[in-house]
Structure formats: C-alpha cells, structure tokens
Design a protein around this nucleic acid. Structure first.
Lengths: 181, 181, 181, 181
DNA sequence: CATGAATGAGCTTTCATTCAT
DNA sequence: CATGAATGAAAGCTCATTCAT
C-alpha cells in the first residue's frame, strides 16, 4: 500500500475521532495528510469510502486477534484475561474507542457501516459465549450478554460520561466478580 | 409558549434523533414543522440553541422527577423500581435515548452540551448513591458506578449493537442480582 | 411629532452614522430606540424613508439658516464668518458630517437622495456666490467653486484621511487667504 | 495568476464601484465574472478579502509610481505636473475614484482598510511635502495639507456633488495659483 | 398607537466531487 | 501518481416587510 494512502487514512482517523465524520471535510483531511484532493480521490472513491476502509481495517484486526486468542486456560482465567486486554486497550487508545462510538451512534455513519457493526457484534458475542459455554451451557448466552453489557457500560461511562472515573477500581470489581463465579 | 415554537422543538427533536444533529438542516426542520426559516430564527438564535433548549428541557424534567421520587421503601425495592422505570422508558422512547447517545458521542454536540451532560451524570450518580448508602456506606460509590455501567451498557447494546436483543431476560437477570443483594 | 417617532429618528441617525445605512438593520434601530418593529413601520413606510426624513430635516435646517444669515457686512468678513461657522459645526458634530459623507458616496443611498443632494449643493453654491458677487462679478462663479472645494477638501481630510489633522492651523491659513483677498 | 481570478477581481472592482461593497453580492460578482461561487471562494477566503486585494493592488501601484516620479525639475513645475497627472487620472477613471471614496466613508469598509488608508495618506503627504520643502521649509507641512485639501475637495465636488462641474477651469485656476507661487 | 410572530427571498460561505494537466 | 482549479448544490443565517391582535 502506498505511503501517501496511509497518510490519508491516518489523517482521516485522527480527524474523524477529534471532530466527528460530518464535521471533517475532505479539505481538512488533505491538509492534515499534506496531499492534494486529487490524490485522495485517486485512492478513495468518496469520503464515505475512507470511513469504510478505516472501520474495515479494525474489524479485520479484531477477527485476526480473535482467531489467535483461542487459549486453553481455565474459563475464569480467560475471562479475566479478556477483561485485562480490553481495559488495557481502552486506556491506550481512548480516541480510537471514541471514534468507534461516535460512528456507531451517528445515524448516518451507522447506516453506512451497519453490516460491519453487526458482524463485529456477533464475533464478540461468539467469542465470549465460547468461554461461558465452558462454565454453563444453559445460561451461556445470557451471561455473555451481561458480560458484554458490563464492558460496554464501563467503557461508555469512562469515555464520555464521568470526568473522573475510577476505572481501575471498577475493573477490579469486575475481575472479582468473574474470578469467584 | 407559542404553538409554532413547540412545533419547531418537536420537529427538531424528531429529526435530530433520526438523522443526527449534523445531518439535519434548518430547511429540514422548517419543512417538518411547516414553518418558515425566519420564524425559527425568530424563536432561536441558532441551530445549536435549538439543541440546547431540547436538552435543557429534558434535564429539567430529570431533576424534577428526581426530586419527587424520594421513596421510603426498602433500598433493594427502590433499585428494582428504578430498573423497571428506566427500562420502561427505554422501550417507550427508543428514539429519544438514541438522540441522547448520539449527542454525547458526537464531539461537536458533546462540546456544546458539556456542562449539562456533566450535570445530568452527577444527578444520576447521587440519586443512585443515595440508595446504595442504605445498603453499604463503605462501598456505595463503587456499587453506584457499577449499577450505572450495567444500565448504560444494556441500553447501549439494546439500542445500537444487537439487532435482536433479549432485553426482558437481561432486565430480569439484573433485577435478580439486586433483589438478592 | 410623537415622542417615539423622534426616538426612532435619533436611533437611526446614530446607527447610520456609526455603521452605515446598509449595515444597520431595522431590528438594530428598534433595539436602539426601544420600540417595536410594528411601531417603526407605523411611522415610516420603509427603511429608506427613515433615511430620507433624516436627510430632509437637515436640508430644511440648512435652508432656514441660509435665509437668516443675510448679513450686511463687508463680503470678506462674511466669508470669514462662514468659514468660522462651518468649522465650528464640523468640530461639534463630526459624526453627523461623516453620516452625510457616507450617504453621499454610497451609490445606493446617493441615488435615493439624489435630488436633495443637488438641492443642497445649489443652495450652498448660490449662498457663496452671493458673497463673491460683491467682490468680483466676473469671477464669482469660479471663486465660489474654489471656496467650496477648499472647505470640502479640508473637511474630508479632517474627517477621514489624516489621523492627526492640524485643523486650526489650516482654518487660519484659509481665513488669511480670504481676508487679504 | 490565473485568468479566472483576474476576471473575479475585475468584476468585483466594477460592481463595488457601481453599487458599493455592501450592495454587491457574491452572486452578482459570479454572474459578472461568469464563474461559480466555489471558484471565487477557492481564490479568496471571503468577500472582504476581495476588497482588500483590490485595494492593496492599487496601493502597491501608488507606491511604485511614487518611487519612479522623483523628478529633478523646478518645484513649481513639479506641482503643476502633479496636478495635471491627478486630474488626468480623475477624468480617465472616474469609477475607480468613486470606489475609493465610498470605501473610505463607509464605516465598515473603512475599518477593514484602516491601515492601508493611513499608509496611502502618509505616502501622498510625504510626496507632496518633498516638493514644498524646496519652496519653503518652514511652511512646507501646512502648504502640503492645503494642497491636498484642494485636490481632494475638487475631486469630491467633481465626482459627487455638482452635476456639471467646470473641472478644467478650476484646474487652470489651481495651476495658476501654484505657478505664481 | 403599539406589539412581535411570521414570511420568504437572498446573503455569505462550505463542501464533496470532477477533471484537465 | 499527483495537483489544484472549477463546479453547483446546499448549508446556516439575516433582513425588510406584513399583519393579526
């Protein structure tokens, strides 16, 4: 992939996260990436398609990571490790999670990425369910939904609701819950 | 308050929820409310100020409801009742919750309503903490954050992540958790 | 004339002078005069007509003053007195002179007040020529034009060209010129 | 510089002079220049900036001409030549002088171009004073102000006050004054 | 006399996109 | 690959004016 195309993707990711998709103009992206409009339209057929490519890249990484992570540990420890991983990334890449949230809740962008959003959700659900299947086949679906809701709720509150959020304490509480399951 | 101003607020609320703030034009609002552009700008100084007025109205209602709801029931039952109320409203007014989410995650609108968002969050936290104080003074803050994360996570998953979400089952699971606390 | 109508005229005069006719809106005038739009349109048929009334009032005063000032003094002293009067007013009412200038040079307003502007010019020319007729019947027209040009040029430079203008010195130079004519 | 940008400048100059800055819309300019609105905003960041560029171009030309015109003639002849040049241009480019006047008297445009207007005034004053210094060092400043006032007054009367102005006769009178100085 | 809700045309400006070079 | 001039639709907003009360 050409160097300049990457610069465009990076610039767009940054700006979409900072200002939102609708408030980022092609001109903004060109300026940030230091390329011309013509070049952007050489690599991408539209502004939407930049968004799609950014989102797809991440989905692909998620699938890849998911494939690798088939651990043979005890299920409770797998849950703990999953929690640790997610919260680690949440802290490392706040902006990126924020971008994903605003894409998912903005009706327009949501519509554009509907299929991918659903795909991601089902990957995550399956991945979590695989773990809970080892704990309780009967309640595994319900437990998975609850687990995901907890993760999403904490992320959401951390990222956009509370100014000073005791993330570590709450993470610990969650780990405690599942380690004594 | 004049009839037409209300029509504008209703139209704007509907469209902001359906299409997002940035994708709703003043022309759209005028068409939906069946009024002229001039009239909208006679009542509101800008598009932003419509959003602010909508959001403020709801915040005010929240404060009012909060003041009224000081129940003298057993704390566990208060939690159950709170859960029931929130999920009832979630199902009744899906669009409105969606509007709130997309406002909170869109950087621009978030900035505009920063103060109000924080105000709302602290009202909710206090309100929940008042209940948990009666259960465990020591852990009440932590428990409140967890409770709110659970509610928010479920709402988020119901509204925007999963196409077919077993909301009732999950609500029941949550009620079970807190009734046996 | 009603009190409120006067307030409108005063407000409009002030704002037209400060911001120019085109940059003053009816809403601005209403706010400044503390009256409603309906009232302004009760007294004036349009924004233009306010301008016309302001300008006409001044023209009428000029005519009146001109009628009174038929002095029987020596012509040179009449010139000196005219110079003194004009410069006195220039210093007293800078804003008002500025208003007149910008009305006269803005093509739109100029067109509206074309006839009055010409009327004023001819009154002034006649008035000055009457004095110069007593000095030199032959050259009186030319001398009048020169005199008016001198007055206008000095006013213009004082009001809008130079930041620190030695008005008094120049006035004295002019008086010297005509007293030794 | 691109051909179309020049067309925009020409169109804007013409229309600003004919109708005034405030009464000329971007749509007017586009129509006159036969270009799209987008193109105008590609070359100029705002309507104001068109005005600034027009004005700056002229100021630059003035400075350039001023630099070249250091003549070694007798001072009185230099004055005569300056008068001839100014009146020649005044007759050639009536519209352009009118544009300058209405920019200088319209409070808004005046504010925008405040610095340039002052710059121009000081260039002209210096240029004239250099000549009068050779006639009378003592009175050169005063004489310069008077000279400029005469020129400006005559221009103003010619351009906007009197319908039939004996420009040539008055120019001759002025030349006579300074040739017999 | 007096108010201010209401209109609709028009304003400046932005923007995704195209295309000749 | 790469540029940036050029387009035209649509955005947010202003404003003189009207009219029911």
């Amino acid at each position: 992939m050409s160097n300049k195309k990457n610069k465009v993707i990076e610039a767009a990711t940054k700006l979409f996260a900072e200002k939102g998709f609708e408030n980022t103009s092609m001109a903004n992206i060109c300026l940030e990436a230091n390329v011309s409009k013509g070049l952007v339209y050489h690599h991408f057929k539209s502004k939407e398609s930049i968004l799609i490519e950014i989102f797809t890249n991440v989905t692909d990484k998620m699938i890849e990571m998911n494939a690798k992570s088939k651990s043979s540990q005890e299920p409770k420890l797998q849950l703990v490790q999953l929690i640790e991983t997610i919260f680690y990334q949440l802290e490392c890449d706040k902006t990126f999670f924020q971008l994903n949230l605003n894409i998912m809740f903005q009706p327009t962008t949501r519509q554009i990425l509907k299929e991918q959003i659903e795909k991601r959700a089902s990957i995550l659900l399956n991945s979590v369910k695989n773990i809970f299947d080892q704990i309780s086949l009967e309640k595994s679906t319900l437990l998975s939904y609850v687990f995901i809701a907890e993760i999403d709720g904490i992320s959401l509150n951390y990222l956009t609701v509370f100014d000073e959020y005791p993330l570590d304490m709450i993470k610990q509480e969650l780990i405690n819950k599942y380690i004594h399951f």
